[in-house]
Design a protein around this nucleic acid. Structure first.
Lengths: 185, 185
DNA sequence: GTTTGCGTTCGAGCGCGCTCGAAGGCGTAC
DNA sequence: GTACGCCTTCGAGCGCGCTCGAACGCAAAC
């Protein structure tokens, strides 16, 4: 996915270990002053997505883009801003389907604002869920790494044994020193 | 993806808003006492992945599963534990390719432990990156929601304007009440 | 016996989000 | 002129991770 690069760049711009604050957001949002119009190559460079993908988004009905006398695309600032939004949403995992829906709402006029909000809230919740999932997985992987490394991890005891390997060629599944025999619920 | 359900269930088991702690991990890891052997349907129910997917994983070389007299799969505890590991890794976004690599290492013997650790560390970092990405996106979406809702959000100013919509049918892009005119860098 | 239900293998198909290639137009550089 | 480079459209192809269907086997229930 081309958009992976985008976020990578965004993260780099923020400094990998920055405070990840509203301040960071402001910097992310700071697109510089967009020129009046841009070519597809410029937009591509700016957003970090390929021209192919930009054309694809247009075909998908997510943006309308004017042509110049030669049939070449001319992206105005509004189109670029929309594309920034679109790439950001794609990056956070919103499917094309939902994006099409949202854009249809936007194009349908201001009376769809409540429904747009619903979509956004739904997506926000999806992101939150995903972060929780990943946090959980992260903990499992970190635990596994520490126990693998030998520096006997914290107090979870069964995780290592649930990895389906437990160092094959070795006595499988010695119980780690348990603190308590895990309450039955 | 079938595995979505798995994590959903895991999260439910933890209580959506729980402390997300090591305690939580222990519960997740607590698979109960696995029976000696299981049928494909049992494993499927236990892990929340379809029998189709279990067969697929086997075809992919991720687990070996014995057959009974009728040619039916018989999953032993080790296979189940491995599948738990595999689904957890899939859930956290590790691609099949890497999983195959990892499993090959496991099957190659204990001397591959260092390389296994490298893989795990790489994956851990990937998860961390993804969490950071999502956190960033979450902030952007939350900001957009609050400003959309009218309850003028915190102090970022440009984000709303970068969404490519800025309430069409309305004077586009009035500057929001800025606190400071964003430093030029 | 036949129906129901669960299992098997194999290969094909699908949904997603790109990604690419072919065939061609236009404008500038040499 | 012609080569280069960037653009266009259109449709096909791809990588991923499943997901499914067809055709069949076996066993217990009715």
């Amino acid at each position: 996915m081309a958009t992976d690069d985008l976020m990578t760049r965004a993260l780099e711009a923020l400094g990998e270990d920055g405070p990840l604050s509203v301040e960071a957001l402001r910097r992310l949002a700071d697109l510089g002053d967009l020129p009046e119009t841009m070519t597809i190559a410029e937009v591509s460079g700016h957003l970090g997505v390929s021209p192919h993908t930009l054309r694809y988004y247009e075909r998908a009905g997510l943006v309308e883009v004017a042509r110049d006398g030669h049939g070449h695309r001319v992206y105005d600032a509004e189109a670029v801003r929309r594309l920034v939004f679109l790439t950001r949403m794609r990056l956070s995992g919103m499917p094309m389907r939902d994006l099409r829906h949202y854009i249809a709402l936007v194009d349908a006029g201001v009376h769809t604002v409540p429904e747009r909000l619903e979509v956004l809230v739904g997506h926000r919740d999806a992101i939150r869920r995903r972060i929780r999932e990943l946090t959980l997985s992260l903990m499992a992987v970190e635990y596994k790494i520490t126990t693998y490394g030998g520096s006997a991890g914290p107090d979870v005891q069964t995780v290592g044994a649930t990895t389906g390997e437990a160092l094959p060629d070795e006595p499988p599944r010695r119980a780690l020193p348990a603190e308590r025999p895990a309450p039955s619920r």
